[in-house]
Design a protein around this nucleic acid. Structure first.
Lengths: 195, 195, 195, 195
DNA sequence: TATGAATGAGCCTTCATTCAT
DNA sequence: TATGAATGAAGGCTCATTCAT
């Protein structure tokens, strides 16, 4: 593994363990067992390092979401799989998830809008599936884009609550996740109206 | 306005703009136009300052949520009003809202559990209404506590997306909010099964 | 007890517990349960407070040393009693002892020479006894002043070693003290040359 | 001279002049004409800096004490030489001497016991000589370890009095030192009992 | 006699970054 | 590609002291 990759790996781990605020170039360098100066050979500065980290995280999330979806799946199954994968990713890599959704534009002066655009692709993917389901008569969707944002917002809320450990300890995480997800998706499934 | 209130106000703004990590006592002092030392006359330390900020925000949110609910309202109406008030508060006072949900346990070693407990009261209130609706045959609720967390998580997701300006610019905020809220609540309303 | 006495008492205790460096006006005030400002009503500033503390300590030591000496005692007994009392005081009130002997002139710019003079009285007392013993043929003293300083220096060494916890743990403090004291005094006792 | 050595030198001086509590990294830096940060390139923190200071001083004292002792010397001569060297060192390098004995365990929470152990070696050396003298019938020693501590304590007292300038100005330092030393050693020399 | 509010100076330390090698 | 030395800025915090009341 190259030094650059080492640095990214360690940074990510540090971000995951101690949060955004405590990620320091020096500490990264020490953990990679390299001089602090060396980081600057691979990244212009801390912001750039962070940016690459975000890039990677977005790529990972995008990949994760599509991982289980198969060509032949029907739209509802696809939707379910995506929702599952989304929540799984958030729970499994909370800080990576947070890099994407919780770093605010204001926090980093040089934060390029295009990163956000990149994330939007995820909603577009979702919107595509909604459209597909609508056409197939399986989903009830007025405005695919709005709906995909609604789904995502809700999933994001669920993920946030779990990640930030705000869930009541009496509620089992797994069950909460499953019920919430069902609730979210159910709202879009077309009721089979008999006769 | 007292110095203490000034400090809180400025802190709140700074916290929101730059996050807890970059919220600095010195910067606050400078902005309040007071010596850094003076802050310590009103707050024991940085953590305590943050804590007080959270306290106030929680109190405000709790008050806001109950503001419109009236004794005679039926459960569904109550639920709607609470959801509305919740989102309204979040949109109107994003900083206060985020203070409550944004600061992470990890960021503050000494974060007292009781603050979280305090927030939990909000869910309990929600749960009470759900129970009431269930008894009245108007809502379909298996587990009131879990359900109230689901509702809240979803609302929180919606609020977050709007506040953090991640909503696609093509989607009007108001409509998004309304649709999302309907979606969330609809999931709990008992279908009137005719004859 | 007056507030002034309270302050002195607390200061002394603080000095004893946490050492010179950590004695702070604020902490004293807090412990006396009085505002920090109030101290300044009784002492011009920290140095003055310290000075009074030293004064008291010197007075205490002087008193302690003479406590057991009785008019009728022969010089050797007097010497022994004084040595005992000296070491006892040092061990029993180590920080008070240290105020006297370890605060260096340089540490406090305004430290008045007269304090040192005051301490010198102790040696003079010692010298008097030596002279008395010499006249009585019980002690062998060439130069009373030098000898009294030698005795004192040695006693001080013994006290220092114990107070600063530099004594090997295998050596019992009591025995060490006793042996050392004997050694010191023995050096001045006239050998009875028989016939 | 390297920066590290400069820092040590300045620290040593400052420590002696104002005590550990008032020895400040910033002041050291300013005096060395270097940024405060730079000190941290050579010492992990203030405590470590002090520790290194102590280390060096102990090493120097140990070396100094043995400097004049020769293999063939008889025990009494060895003892005399060591005492002389000890006092010489204390008078010649008062700062280094005091570093060893002045800094108190309480002042530094993390003070490693091993440093004290290191100093104890000096007493062991002394004890060895006492044992040797006892075996040779030249010294009268009951418990070598205790005795070596007694000797040292007394020497230390003598050194302290001189260094801290508490000696009465009427007494010439040299003579005081010589007389005191004789007194201390004399106490252990076996009287030649004729016939 | 007592105090709450305020402050400037100072403390130790960490940080991101640069420069010469 | 790599580094050791250096630094200015900043951070949280404590301190002795003053002032108005």
């Amino acid at each position: 593994m190259s030094l650059k990759e080492d640095i990214l790996e360690v940074s990510r781990r540090m971000l995951m363990k101690h949060g955004f605020g405590k990620m320091s170039m020096r500490k990264i360098a020490k953990q990679v067992e390299v001089s602090a100066t060396s980081i600057y050979l691979h990244f212009k500065n801390k912001d750039e390092l962070l940016l690459e980290l975000i890039d990677l995280s977005i790529a990972n999330l995008t990949r994760a979401i599509n991982k289980n979806v198969e060509e032949g799946d029907d739209p509802v199954t696809k939707l379910e799989k995506m929702a599952d994968s989304f929540l799984d990713f958030a729970i499994k890599y909370p800080q990576e998830y947070e890099i994407i959704y919780m770093v605010r534009p204001e926090e980093m002066p040089e934060y390029p809008k295009e990163k956000f655009e990149q994330v939007r692709k995820i909603y577009e993917m979702l919107a595509d599936i909604l459209r597909e389901g609508d056409r197939a008569g399986m989903l009830k969707v007025d405005n695919p884009l709005t709906s995909s944002y609604i789904i995502w917002a809700q999933l994001h809320g669920v993920a946030s609550v779990i990640i930030s450990k705000r869930l009541d300890t009496r509620i089992p995480t797994d069950e909460f996740m499953k019920q919430a997800k069902d609730h979210i998706i159910q709202g879009f499934i077309k009721q089979k109206t008999p006769a």
